[in-house]
Design a protein around this nucleic acid. Structure first.
Length: 595
RNA sequence: GGUUCCGUAGCUCAGUUGGAUAGAGCAACAGCCUUCUAAGCUGUGGGUCGCGCGUUCGAGCCGCGCCGGAAUCACCA
């Protein structure tokens, strides 16, 4: 509509003022709720052509549009704003098109689909997933749904940081203090068990360091020379040389972790098309580094460590191989990127990684380009903000880490309590109830996290828990189930709910408001795809739900005596439910049929 | 100190390429269930958009300078 209006306005200016107008001078926006009208033309930029007051110019153009464009049924001018009223008939015609859509994502399809890798989750195998990972997983998965919804070929990948010094820490602690404990023997989830040994390592290591410092040794020196650290480094070296005992220990402990992760992923409803393991890719990275070293792109330090000098790019020196020859994080990320490009020839490779690693990705990109990989332009760091607690950042030392499994469980329990209190599900089987509690609890959690602009840090208050009223997932789910309920009743009454025909000649302002909002769905999804922001869709779903709830409250649907009006309201409700469903689907949020 | 990001109601957050009187929810208070689900709807109060200057017909949004906060600048990942 805006496009057509623009053309008409250009035409108007040409005929009335005999001037050609550039597109960007014609600013059309939706009319604010406080004024009468649907679209508003900002006339200030056109004064140079009219050489007249804003009011007079608005009047003149408005009159022209009303006379020459049937969709415009009226207008008013306030200050420099020309408010155009669009006829109900036009809106209804528009709505008919939306109602006929098969998926509601048709208009979002891009003209040139790309191959896009989305890397998300990226856990370390030394501890279980926490709240930060939840944000990561939800963002990554939603991004996948949104981009593929827009027609891109999207590959979900995960890089598992399954090697490195931190992994050796939990291995060493288990070797020393574990007494052969396994997930079976302890009844602990595998990732939590391994995490327990990581914590144990840190505790003992800290004690050693403190003892050394008390004996008068300098702090950095103490950290380096503590027996546990020395042993860990030896272990890493052994691991890199393929020591059988270490490798089999590593395999065993990692396998425990994977079982645990899979369980959490399943509960979160996320999955992957291809999983990379750092233990595979770090070698590729090492080769790349050594080759680049030969080509003098990198340099070797006196102590045998290998570095890149990125000062010409405005960055620093970056270590790529330690003096003992082992690889660091950056080394393997080089390998992973190259591997992926070889395999998928991607247009974009999106890394869903926290903003604490902004520098890392700047370096990664610069480094790849330096080595000669021009496709590195397609690397995108989708940098999201940290999740903080009311008292600040989560700290393992202070035991304030919010565990993913615990949180999920808690959300579902809360959903259960609230549901039981409201007592609307008494005629359901336990199994069905469980399913509904799960959907509501996860819906609340997911929405809570996804509604926030991903780039921003967000605060999570576990004490207040997550609300189920207002701008929340359950509110949107509730709206959806209300519509479902209407249709159940309609069927019960023997009203045909399949093909509902309507002409829409009798519509009220509330219905038109809803149509306007429904119309904005595809542009919202497109915006979410280009700006990588599921939050746009979340907030849209909320706006739509709120608008529908008002409509639902003010008007009876099935109780409407006039069939013409009733049918129109039914279709309006149906399309609303479809769009809410689709929007929430893009966020990875499941919808219950009743709640 | 360098770089990057963030400062909007008591709290959590929205706010399109700069447009009209800055919006929601939570919390507080006051109403609305004989009806398709009250996890809802309606109303009231609540703001120096961190501060200042500049660009502009017009700035929460753009530029510069401060103030406050976060991240990062590891032979950690």
């Amino acid at each position: 509509m805006e496009i057509v209006l623009k053309e008409k306005i250009k035409e108007a200016v040409k005929i009335i003022y005999n001037s050609e107008v550039k597109d960007d001078l014609i600013q059309i926006q939706e009319t604010r709720k406080d004024f009468k009208g649907d679209f508003t033309l900002v006339v200030f930029p056109l004064l140079r052509f009219s050489k007249n007051t804003p009011e007079k110019t608005g009047e003149t153009i408005g009159q022209y549009l009303k006379d020459n464009f049937t969709a415009v049924s009226g207008f008013n001018v306030i200050k420099g704003f020309l408010n155009l009223e669009i006829s109900d008939a036009w809106w209804v015609e528009y709505f008919k098109k939306i109602a006929a859509e098969k998926t509601h994502l048709e208009n979002c399809k891009v003209s040139h689909p790309e191959t896009i890798l989305v890397e998300y989750s990226s856990p370390n195998t030394n501890k279980p997933l926490h709240l930060g990972h939840i944000r990561n997983n939800l963002l990554g998965f939603s991004l996948y749904r949104i981009l593929s919804g827009c027609g891109h070929r999207v590959i979900k990948t995960n890089i598992v940081n399954d090697r490195g010094i931190h992994i050796c820490k939990s291995m060493l602690a288990w070797q020393k203090f574990g007494n052969g404990e396994t997930p079976e023997s302890s009844g602990m989830k595998g990732d939590h068990l391994v995490g327990k040994y990581y914590v144990l390592f840190e505790k003992n290591y800290k004690e050693q360091v403190e003892k050394l410092i008390q004996n008068g040794i300098d702090a950095t020196e103490a950290k380096n020379s503590a027996t546990l650290m020395k042993e860990t480094r030896e272990m890493l070296l052994k691991w890199e040389t393929g020591d059988e005992e270490i490798v089999s220990l590593w395999k065993m402990m990692n396998s425990w972790v994977y079982v645990g992760f899979d369980e959490t992923y399943k509960k979160l409803g996320v999955d992957f098309d291809k999983i990379y393991y750092e233990s595979d890719t770090y070698k590729v990275g090492k080769d790349i580094v050594l080759r680049a070293l030969k080509e003098k792109i990198l340099y070797r330090n006196e102590d045998n460590s290998v570095w890149a000098d990125l000062t010409p790019d405005g960055l620093d020196q970056k270590l790529l191989l330690r003096s003992d020859g082992t690889a660091v994080y950056m080394t393997q990320d080089l390998g992973t990127a190259v591997d992926r490009y070889k395999e998928f020839n991607f247009d974009k490779n999106i890394y869903v990684v926290g903003n604490e690693q902004n520098y890392h990705f700047q370096v990664l990109k610069a480094l790849l380009k330096r080595i000669g990989y021009n496709w590195a332009d397609g690397l995108i760091h989708f940098s999201y903000g940290m999740v903080e607690l009311p008292e600040g950042r989560m700290k393992s030392r202070e035991g304030t880490i919010v565990d993913a499994d615990d949180l999920i469980k808690e959300m579902q329990l809360t959903a259960m309590e609230v549901s039981l209190e409201l007592g609307k599900l008494s005629d359901f089987s336990d199994e069905e109830k469980e399913d509904i509690f799960r959907k509501i609890g996860m819906g609340a959690l997911k929405y809570y996290i996804l509604k926030v602009d991903p780039r921003k840090n967000m605060t999570f208050n576990p004490a207040e828990s997550i609300d189920f009223n207002g701008n929340t997932g359950p509110f949107i789910q509730y709206t959806y189930t209300r519509i479902k309920s209407v249709f159940r009743k309609a069927e019960h009454l023997g009203i045909n709910t399949g093909q509902i025909s309507f002409s829409g000649t009798k519509t009220g302002p509330k219905e038109i408001e809803l149509i306007k909002l429904l119309r904005k769905f595809s542009e919202t999804v497109s915006a979410a795809a280009t700006s990588y922001s599921p939050a746009l869709i979340a907030n849209y779903c909320y706006d739509l739900s709120r608008e529908y709830n008002q409509f639902y409250h003010d008007f009876s649907i099935l109780g409407e005596a006039e069939e013409e009006i009733r049918n129109f309201r039914m279709v309006l409700s149906k399309v609303t439910s479809e769009i809410i469903y689709t929007g929430m689907w893009l966020l990875g949020i499941e919808m219950p049929e009743r709640m």
